[in-house]
Amino acid sequence: MAITLTELWAILGCGAVTLLSRALPFAFVKQMRMPGWLLDFLTFVPITIMTALACESLFVGHTGHLATLNVTNCLAAIPATIAGILTKSLLMVVVVGIMAMAVIRYFTLGN
């Protein structure tokens, strides 16, 4: 149970930075009237951010070169997506995705 001074400052500083990024927008939105263009912009935030977050695990970046596909993740994404289309249930997507990945890993264990 040890903590160095650097670790303590890193935790407190990063905690403050993260808290402000999360909570300040709530204070601003509550106090101020948002301009129309900003509201228009924000309607696209859910679909764009979720797409980008999903892409984050499907592509592998290489600085200076074009990204490549993360093949195992892309393969496991197929049954997971089908489960979503069939059941419309988040839990089923997650469970089928984990099972698919376990199966893929089992067969590629030597690699």
Partner: peptide, 28 residues
Amino acid sequence: PARFGFDFALTAMFIGLVYLQLIGDRKL
């Protein structure tokens, strides 16, 4: 934990959430 596929849970979740957003958002 990766051996049992648990590391894919997060990716699967975002795939599910994108899909639900896609079919659910009637405004866009």
